[in-house]
């Protein structure tokens, strides 16, 4: 299941959703808010906080389609993803993905697939707030 949360992500609860006795492997990914902007061609800027914004209805629709596609594409038993919205501080978990499978290879591959697809297609955007008082929307990365 794909979900959107405006509160701190409850990782234990999410992990229970993918826990099952037939699985021999579990892979999870946590995306954190880092303390600097890392655009290649501009100087690093110190980041204080991020504001994530989503079109919630369509984000859930696209996100759940990604989970369904991953279930079809990979030999996995369960998968879930939760994305934060609202104001996040440095160190907060912005996205959590968990996948369980009979064997580890499929779990690793499915976890990366869900992450890449989410970043590329789920209608969520982030506005970075810098220490110097400025802010800027983060451009999509190819």
């Amino acid at each position: 299941m794909f979900s959107i949360s405006n509160k701190s992500i409850d990782i234990n609860n999410l992990k229970q959703q993918v826990d099952n006795p037939q699985s021999g492997g579990f892979v999870s990914f946590e995306g954190w808010v880092r303390n600097h902007n890392c655009t290649a061609d501009t100087p690093r800027k110190a980041v204080l906080e991020l504001h994530y914004e989503a079109h919630e209805k369509l984000a859930l629709q696209v996100g759940n389609a990604i989970i369904d596609a991953a279930m079809q594409k990979f030999d996995i038993n369960a998968a879930c993803c939760c994305h934060r919205v609202g104001r996040l501080q440095v160190g907060d978990v912005a996205i959590w993905i968990g996948v369980s499978a009979d064997h580890r290879q499929a779990a690793f591959a499915a976890c990366e697939y869900i992450l890449n697809q989410t970043k590329a297609t789920v209608p969520i955007w982030k506005n970075e707030f810098y220490r110097d008082g400025e802010s800027g929307w983060v451009e999509a990365k190819p």
């Binding site: 369509l58 996205i95 970043k119 789920v122 955007w125 999509a140």
Partner: peptide, 29 residues
């Protein structure tokens, strides 16, 4: 483009009281 909270096509036509939205490329994660 999105129309009344659903994905739409650029050539879709608009009616009175429609809610039109524009989504930039996704940049979450």
């Amino acid at each position: 483009p999105i129309l009344n909270d659903n994905f739409a096509q650029w050539n879709d036509l608009l009616n009175d009281r429609d809610v039109l939205g524009f989504l930039p490329p996704a940049a979450g994660g």
